[in-house]
Measured scan of single mutants.
Amino acid sequence: SSQSQGISSSSTSTMPNSSQSSHSSSGTLSSLETVSTQELYSIPEDQEPEDQEPEEPTPAPWARLWALQDGFANLECVNDNYWFGRDKSCEYCFDEPLLKRTDKYRTYSKKHFRIFREVGPKNSYIAYIEDHSGNGTFVNTELVGKGKRRPLNNNSEIALSLSRNKVFVFFDLTVDDQSVYPKALRDEYIMSKTLGSGACGEVKLAFERKTCKKVAIKIISKRKFAIGSAREADPALNVETEIEILKKLNHPCIIKIKNFFDAEDYYIVLELMEGGELFDKVVGNKRLKEATCKLYFYQMLLAVQYLHENGIIHRDLKPENVLLSSQEEDCLIKITDFGHSKILGETSLMRTLCGTPTYLAPEVLVSVGTAGYNRAVDCWSLGVILFICLSGYPPFSEHRTQVSLKDQITSGKYNFIPEVWAEVSEKALDLVKKLLVVDPKARFTTEEALRHPWLQDEDMKRKFQDLLSEENESTALPQVLAQPSTSRKRPREGEAEGAETTKRPAVCAAVL
């Protein structure tokens, strides 16, 4: 046999249950609850290399294929790409003598399909299967379609040439079993990697079954959420508030809700932002270029202005709740996480202390139980975000031990490091100062900020419009641009040419 590394010779191994799959997660993409704000000051410096380099560890398999027929071997997927077919160049070659004697062998292509993985959001991997055969590759009886790919989820059954000719079961060793999710959700989405997690739940990458488009699904544990919100009269209202707010909003710089499922837990389906959180971008770069800050901040102002015009105060604006559309420097941003939002009543007064301390406005800290506050709290938070983006460190921090965090904020005395700000323009610093004003009545509004000289930049605004146009074009394009080929190089076993392929839609398939 010419099988590559990772293939075992026996096809009769006992199949494990899916609970053996491991679970991976990374930083929070968007969480309903406010958790302790991640610290920006503690960015690790590059460490000196050791005298002796450690040995390379043996790579762990990321997936496993269990053979369902004699003549096929099990495969431990270690590499990122595997070709399957009769050709000797394939990493998994159909060359077992037992297999060659079967009637089905002649229906398999020289290069029938490939399984591979690509880097997705949060640097996690996504597994795909890609059909290159004349007679078809099927996943859970659905045709992939020649020249098309679809994501592979845990426990997928792979069939060759005929939908009933099941050859492998695919085990993704990095994700959960699909069966743990409600059927209504599974009918519409293929669940994938964990993108982030918080005290009350997690955010998962998923794929729409009909279109193969990526989405983010925010899962909120009702049990954990009820415990964490025990002081509230009705904890469920917080989730329902977020859903109702998101459904009503329609702005290019605000995250869109696509679906909602109320089962044992809450499942909020949101558009996916491939670039992750602004927080991670700031930490990764230490600070952002001023031109990049301007492009992002302009969009934040437009989003918050839209919220305020619609009578909504976000109340928890922070870099973790600003998501980026891509890994590119120039990209769209979207505001997310409306769990603490407040729809303005007639009095415009709110007395609930919520939000993240580092970003809270002075009037929030001094008015607990005594007075109210209004939309100006969001403008203060925007000032803190702009400060961080321009400088790479927070204006107020618990680690300045000589003054408490509350006193720093209520006095408006931010930590100004001259040598850092020497590289920032006077106009940018002036806008920061106009937003970090203790008196909410004297603080800049979103309208005033948008009129500030720093943002009178036609090149930046043109760039934003171009990015918007690109997004609109990409969302308007159909996901499947061509029909699967019906040509046949070899006959199917026991049926006429093209008899099955043309009847089945290529579900969740995307043209390369």
Rank of each mutant, 00 (worst) to 15 (best):
S487G: 11
S341V: 01
A449P: 01
R443H: 04
E271D: 14
D457K: 12
C354E: 03
E277F: 00
T347Q: 06
M350E: 03
D330Y: 09
A303M: 00
L302W: 07
L278W: 02
L360A: 14
A509Q: 09
K294S: 14
I257E: 12
D378M: 00
L353M: 06
C253V: 04
A371H: 12
K334A: 06
Q408R: 10
Y359R: 01
F338Q: 02
L295N: 12
H314G: 00
Y296I: 07
R351K: 09
S367V: 10
E423H: 15
K461E: 07
M273L: 12
L301P: 00
R287W: 15
E471A: 06
E329K: 12
N250D: 08
E493A: 04
L455P: 11
E500S: 14
L467E: 00
N250Y: 14
L344P: 14
K503S: 08
T502Y: 00
E274R: 10
C389S: 11
A482Y: 05
R492L: 12
N310E: 05
K248C: 07
E320F: 05
K342F: 03
F416V: 12
L272E: 09
T356S: 03
L467A: 01
H314F: 01
P252H: 09
M350T: 12
G383R: 01
T475N: 02
D430E: 07
E277A: 04
V511G: 14
W454F: 10
T475D: 12
V420Q: 15
V368D: 04
E244T: 14
E458Q: 13
L436W: 04
L468P: 05
P395S: 06
K489I: 01
P440S: 00
Q479E: 09
E328Q: 11
I312G: 02
K318G: 01
T446D: 05
V384S: 02
C293T: 05
H308Q: 15
Y267A: 02
V322P: 01
A303F: 01
Y266T: 05
C354S: 02
K258N: 08
V364P: 01
Q299A: 08
G498C: 09
E264R: 05
N259T: 06
A496D: 08
A361C: 02
P357N: 10
K503V: 02
G383L: 01
M460E: 09
V269H: 15
T446E: 00
E346W: 04
I243P: 00
L324V: 09
Y306H: 06
T352S: 14
V283K: 13
Y306F: 10
T370G: 06
C508Y: 09
G275L: 03
M300H: 02
E328I: 00
E500C: 15
V480Q: 03
A449V: 04
L450M: 02
H251T: 04
K334L: 06
K258L: 08
K247G: 13
S469R: 11
G284D: 09
D439G: 02
N415H: 07
S411N: 09
D407T: 13
D265T: 15
M300E: 01
L317Y: 01
E329L: 06
T501Y: 15
N259P: 05
S367W: 15
W380L: 02
Q408P: 08
S348C: 15
P491G: 02
Q483S: 02
A449N: 02
A496P: 10
V283G: 07
E242A: 06
A291W: 12
F260H: 13
G383I: 01
L360E: 07
C379H: 12
K256M: 08
K247M: 13
G372K: 04
G369V: 09
T486K: 05
K503Y: 13
N259D: 05
A499V: 11
I243F: 10
I254S: 02
I257H: 08
K247H: 02
V283W: 03
I257R: 14
F464V: 08
L349E: 06
I409S: 03
D265A: 11
N321Q: 03
I343M: 05
R488A: 04
G355L: 01
V304D: 04
F297L: 10
G311R: 08
K318L: 01
T347M: 14
G369A: 11
E471F: 08
E447H: 06
G275T: 07
L324H: 06
N321P: 00
P505T: 04
N321A: 04
S474T: 07
S474Y: 11
T370A: 11
I333V: 05
M273K: 15
T475K: 05
T445P: 15
E447Y: 12
Q465P: 09
K258T: 07
K334S: 04
K248W: 11
F279G: 03
I268Q: 10
E277V: 01
T502E: 05
L431A: 01
S487I: 11
L349G: 13
I409V: 13
R400F: 02
A496N: 07
E329M: 10
D280Y: 15
T502H: 11
V366G: 07
L349R: 08
F338N: 00
E426K: 10
T502I: 12
T292H: 13
K503A: 00
R287Y: 13
L386F: 13
A263G: 13
L382V: 08
K256C: 13
A303R: 02
E426Y: 12
S404G: 04
E290M: 13
L246W: 03
E244Y: 13
E271R: 12
R375T: 14
A371E: 05
A428V: 06
I417K: 05
N321S: 03
L317R: 02
A506D: 08
L307D: 00
K406R: 12
A361D: 01
I409Y: 01
L512P: 12
R462N: 15
L301F: 07
E309K: 09
I385W: 02
S341K: 06
V432W: 09
I268E: 15
L431V: 08
Y359G: 02
V269F: 11
L270R: 01
E244D: 13
A496F: 12
Y359T: 02
I312R: 04
G494T: 04
G355V: 04
L344M: 13
L295P: 07
D262I: 11
K406N: 13
P357V: 15
